[in-house]
Nucleic acid binder design. Structure first.
Lengths: 337, 337
DNA sequence: CCGCCTTGCACAATCGATGTTGCAAAGCAT
DNA sequence: ATGCTTTGCAACATCGATTGTGCAAGGCGG
């Protein structure tokens, strides 16, 4: 098959006794429109196949100014983003395009830089997941006329698909409330705490709303101090739960954990506690972590529907959606014991 | 800055009162060699910056036949591969190139297809992680003169970097042996089992060797039936441990779990067992899973040094290494209780 | 047999950057 | 002033595929 260097349409043209333009038309499927006879087209296609010809994407992209590349920008490769990436890849490849996945380390400067890089590649479209500075990025894409869509973290200037964080948080909170252990009678410890995330981000904000919704609906009092949402950082989460434990003199009666990283950080401390203390707290985690179901105490979880998120994002993109915000309700995984 | 369409060197040339070739030289740094005066070069660079000019990568790639793209092929996005992807991205971007990460779903056909696709993009080099059919891929790359390197799964035809699975498995097995619970006295149940993986793959093969090494070194008898290594599949792992449990009438005295997916599958069954039974088995997992340390029973783990693997792979690639096999010894994470 | 419409294809321009070649002007020695 | 070397840059061909245009041969009506 492919033996030496790359062949061009000119080589094929010579071998087929046709012109390069005819070969091009035959191979890219436009031959009908270009009034090339079926016989000629088939002959050329056969020869091209025999020679193992494949088209030079740069040349095509240069001419058509469409690269056939679709980019996904993720902050990092955690479980959730990796799932998104996986689904994204499948969808892109199903469309005969090439997925380009880049992590930006949550750095706005890096995000800008990557987008400008992608612009130079004449990227067909861009999916932003959990971007730090959506508005800037959207403007950048608009300037370059690149269709784009936001996932997980919405943008007012472009179509966005996000998890219905409020509904999810409400579901999770209700589940926590439904499985509360008996009261300890020690005041603060009988409260339910919300831990982790960044309250300045819409996702965290909405989860806090959902949390409050559920509490209100059941007439449970809620004081601002019960919401500890400064960061998604794992180590910070460990410190936060330690501090809370020290302050309350034990675990609270319920704990809403706002992401897998916070979950991991929290568990690092919590897992060392005696069985009895663990049983005195109802845990919920807004993220799905399979091992969470295998701990020695129940943890309710909420899982984002990553496939749906990606599919809807494609739909919006391919239908030239205006800047709408779509919300996808997540799934509840109640602990089984 | 960037207001409308993309500018070309011709636009800049017009604005600078110079020719396109001069602009090109000024902007890509070859102006000294091309005997462009420093004054002219600086003037052009200044104008280009003001206009927010950025170069069209397709055009450059077409002309130079170097794309500036570096690809990573992964089977899927699990924890290990995602870590590799993360490190890979950082290294590539540090070199001012563009990382392209593609998952092939462990499908040899898909692998071939992707490589041929990448060839058409004039990819600068390719990293294969855990490939199914390394030899074919290597030949494909050689035909296209694409430098490439294999990680995790070695290839005889190209430089490869893999974890020293044998040494790692030996370390892990020794740790299991060192923490064995007291004998039950019930024959088969006092044995140690190796679970998961695919014995036809070098990685599994070498881990089995390491497992045997450690057993031999301590004069522990080992029968072929103690090695159950047909697949990495999660569900199959659940079934396998269930079957083993049924056959032995309980957990074995020690269990070597060969990967995170198998770990997850095994735990799905095991986590439901009573505390006492769990304490009667020493668990080791050849993969690192943070939640593994938080289970209600100790699990020793071995963690592959993904950063080192990637760094060595780059080194081999950039130094035009012949087809050598480099082994990186993994890290042992003994359970803490 | 003549004009006219298809059919079938070749030609050539083009996308934007690179790099080779050529050619003035400047510098220098004699 | 003459000849020779440098310096500084513009012209032009090129990478490979796409696409607008032109033109010949064939078909058909009158």
């Amino acid at each position: 098959m492919s033996n030496k260097q790359k062949e061009t349409i000119y080589d094929i043209a010579a071998k087929a006794g046709a012109s390069a333009s005819t070969v091009s038309a035959a191979l890219n499927g436009t031959w009908k429109k270009r009034r090339i006879s079926q016989k000629t087209a088939e002959r050329i296609i056969k020869i091209a196949r025999e020679q193992g010809y494949t088209t030079n994407n740069q040349a095509r992209a240069l001419r058509t100014s469409r690269s056939g590349l679709v980019a996904l920008l993720v902050p990092e490769y955690n479980r959730f983003f990796s799932n998104i990436a996986q689904t994204f890849s499948q969808e892109v490849r199903a469309r005969n395009l090439c997925p380009v996945i880049i992590s930006t380390e949550r750095d706005p400067e890096e995000e800008r830089h990557v987008v400008s890089d992608l612009t130079n590649w004449q990227i067909d479209s861009v999916f932003f997941v959990g971007s730090v500075a959506p508005d800037d990025l959207s403007r950048q894409c608009q300037d370059a006329a690149i269709p784009h869509v936001f996932l997980d973290q919405p943008c007012a200037l472009a179509p966005s698909v996000v998890t219905d964080n409020r509904a999810g948080a409400r579901m999770l909170t209700e589940q926590i409330l439904a499985s509360l252990p008996p009261q300890s009678g020690e005041g603060l410890r009988d409260q339910i705490y919300f831990l982790g995330g960044d309250r300045t981000l819409p996702s965290t904000y909405n989860r806090i709303e959902g949390f409050s919704d559920a509490m209100c609906a059941q007439d449970v009092a809620l004081h601002p101090s019960q919401i500890i949402a400064e960061t998604y950082n794992k180590d910070a989460a460990t410190r936060a739960i330690e501090a809370l434990y020290a302050e309350l003199g034990g675990l609270p009666r319920g704990l809403f954990i706002n992401s897998d990283s916070v979950f991991e950080g929290t568990m690092r401390f919590v897992a060392g506690l005696p069985e009895k203390e663990l049983r005195a707290c109802a845990f919920g985690c807004f993220d799905y972590e399979p091992f969470g179901q295998l701990l020695r105490f129940p943890v309710h979880m909420v899982r984002q529907r990553h496939r749906t998120l990606v599919e809807r994002a494609f739909w919006l993109l391919e239908n030239n959606s205006p800047p709408v915000l779509e919300q996808v309700v997540p799934e509840l995984y109640p602990a089984e014991f």
